[in-house]
C-alpha cells in the first residue's frame, strides 16, 4: 500500500487499501476480509490445513506413520485451530456444518470432520488397506484444495474463480507435503530420502508451471482478473511475487535442487529448501488472496 499523505490522512477515513472512500466499487476494489487484519489467520489456516493434508497424503503412499500423525496434527490442530481463531463467534463453529448442500465452507467442515475421525482411526489402527487408503487419499486431496476451493466458488472474485486455482492448490499441497516428508526421512536417516529427490525435482517444476499457468489463465479471464495479475506483476504485490514466489519459492529451491542434482542430498539443504518453499508458498497464497478484486458496480 502506498503511504498516505498528510492531507489524505486528515480528509479520508482509511480504507485499508490504496482506494479513497469515493473510489470504492467504482474502481476495481480489493477484497479485504479474507486477508487483512484477522483475515491473515485464514491464510494461515488454509496453509496449515493444506500442508498437513499434503504430508498425510504423501505419507499414505509410504505408510509412514510419523508423517501421518504429524500431517493429521498440523492439519487439524494448527489449521483447524487458526481457522476457529478467525471466526467472529468461535463457539458457534459447529453451526458451520449446517449448510453442506450449498456452502463450500460447510462441505469443507464436513470433510475435515470426516478426515479427523477417519485419520484418527487409520493412525490408531494402522489400517492401510487399499479401500481405506483410497478414501484417505481422496479426503487428503479434498482438504488440500479446501481453502482454494472455498475461494474458487466465489464468482464475484475473478482472480479466485480462475480455472487454475484448484490444480495449483493441489500441486502446492502435495509439493510441500512431499518436502516435509523428505525432510522427515532425511533427519531420521531414512535412505528413501535420496530416492525421493526425483519427486522433489519434478514437483518443483510442476509447482512453478502451475503458478505460471495461474497467472496466464487469470490474466486472460476478465478485466478485473487482469488487474489482479497486474497488481502481482507490476503493482504493490510485485515485491512479494518476485521476491517471495519467484526467488524464495522457486529460484533458490531450484539452486538447492541443482546442488543436490548429482544425488548428494543433505538434510540441512533439504531443510533450507523446505523453509524456502514454506515462505514461497505463503507468499503465493498471500498475493492470490490479497490481489483478488471486485468488479466495479458502475
Amino acid at each position: 500500500m502506498k503511504k498516505r499523505n498528510e492531507l489524505e490522512k486528515i480528509m479520508f477515513h482509511p480504507t485499508g487499501t490504496d482506494l479513497k472512500p469515493y473510489e470504492w466499487m467504482i474502481s476495481a476494489t480489493p477484497q479485504q476480509e479474507w486477508i487483512d487484519k484477522k483475515g491473515i489467520f485464514l491464510l494461515l489456516a488454509f496453509f496449515f490445513t493444506e500442508i498437513g493434508a499434503g504430508l498425510y497424503f504423501i505419507s499414505l503412499f509410504y505408510q509412514y506413520r510419523t508423517g501421518l500423525i504429524l500431517g493429521w496434527l498440523i492439519s487439524l490442530i494448527l489449521g483447524g485451530g487458526v481457522h476457529v481463531l478467525y471466526l467472529g463467534n468461535p463457539f458457534r463453529a459447529w453451526r458451520m456444518l449446517m449448510k453442506p448442500q450449498t456452502s463450500e465452507l460447510s462441505r469443507g467442515m464436513w470433510i475435515i470432520g470426516i478426515f479427523a475421525v477417519a485419520g484418527f482411526v487409520q493412525i490408531v489402527t494402522s489400517n492401510f488397506g487399499p479401500v481405506f487408503n483410497v478414501i484417505m487419499g481422496i479426503l487428503s486431496l479434498l482438504i488440500i484444495s479446501h481453502g482454494f476451493m472455498t475461494m474458487n466458488v466465489i464468482r464475484a472474485l475473478a482472480a479466485w474463480s480462475s480455472t487454475m486455482v484448484i490444480p495449483l492448490s493441489i500441486i502446492s499441497g502435495v509439493w510441500i507435503g512431499c518436502q516435509m516428508f523428505q525432510f522427515m526421512l532425511a533427519v531420521s536417516g531414512n535412505q528413501m530420502a535420496q530416492s525421493f529427490e526425483i519427486w522433489s525435482q519434478i514437483l518443483l517444476i510442476v509447482y512453478f508451471v502451475c503458478v505460471l499457468l495461474y497467472i496466464w489463465g487469470t490474466y486472460h479471464a476478465s478485466e478485473t482478473a487482469e488487474k489482479s495479475i497486474s497488481l502481482m506483476l507490476k503493482g504493490d504485490l510485485a515485491k512479494y511475487f518476485y521476491g517471495g514466489v519467484v526467488l524464495i519459492g522457486f529460484m533458490l529451491p531450484l539452486l538447492i535442487t541443482l546442488k543436490m542434482w548429482d544425488g548428494d542430498i543433505n538434510a540441512g539443504l533439504i531443510f533450507l529448501r523446505l523453509a524456502l518453499i514454506f515462505a514461497g508458498d505463503i507468499a503465493m497464497r498471500y498475493i492470490i488472496m490479497k490481489s483478488a478484486m471486485y468488479q466495479p458496480l458502475i
Binding site: W24, M25, T29, Q31, E33, W34, Y86, L87, G88, N89, P90, R92, A93, R95, M96, S103, E104, L105, T150, I154, R155, A156, L157, Y294, Q295, L297
Partner: peptide, 16 residues
C-alpha cells in the same frame, strides 16, 4: 444468533 462470523457471505457478494 446463528452467524459464526466467517464472512463467506461478505466475500461472495458481488455487490459488496
Amino acid at each position: 444468533d446463528k452467524c459464526v462470523g466467517c464472512r463467506a457471505c461478505l466475500i461472495s457478494c458481488p455487490y459488496q
